[in-house]
């Protein structure tokens, strides 16, 4: 499924909880889909595809937003809690910390939807929990 087809199908999808999705393709060197969950205030989710994986990403914070004295504690906390977070893991891309989930490229739409909704919920919990390590 190419990105446009995927965006169309996702836009028409409605979960049992009543969530629907706003999709927008972002033009650039690689194809990225920006997804927002309707009926659930949250973060923009970016979806991109590689040969083997569909990767859904939420950008959390940058190095500059971290209180320097708290940085090591924050990193340890991220490592300690990562496995507890359902379907999502932490990573860093350049100087941006991200929460992401990766699925097999053959995953069906319902799996991707599950990933997106869970990622969004996880991100809210993560930012609430890690907020003290960040500047206001």
């Amino acid at each position: 499924m190419n990105t446009e087809d995927f965006a169309i199908r996702l836009s028409q999808y409605r979960t049992a909880e009543g969530y629907t999705f706003d999709c927008q393709t972002i033009a650039g060197e690689v194809e990225v889909l920006q997804v927002e969950v309707n009926g659930f205030e949250g973060f923009p989710i970016f979806v991109t595809k590689t040969k083997f994986q569909i990767i859904c990403i939420i950008y959390l914070w940058t190095e500059a937003e971290i209180i320097p004295e708290s940085r090591v504690e924050m990193l340890e906390m991220m490592l300690d809690t990562s496995i507890s977070i359902p379907l999502s893991s932490y990573a860093r891309v350049g100087d941006r910390y991200v929460l992401f989930g990766a699925l097999s490229v053959d995953s069906g739409l319902d799996k991707v939807v599950e990933e997106i909704v869970t990622l969004n919920e996880n991100a809210i919990d993560v930012v609430s929990a890690m907020g003290d390590f960040l500047y206001e």
Binding site: G28, V30, V32, T48, T50, I57, Y59
Partner: peptide, 12 residues
């Protein structure tokens, strides 16, 4: 994947 994500991040 590394390459893809870095490029995607640049785009975003």
């Amino acid at each position: 994947t590394t390459d893809r994500i870095q490029k995607a991040t640049e785009v975003i």
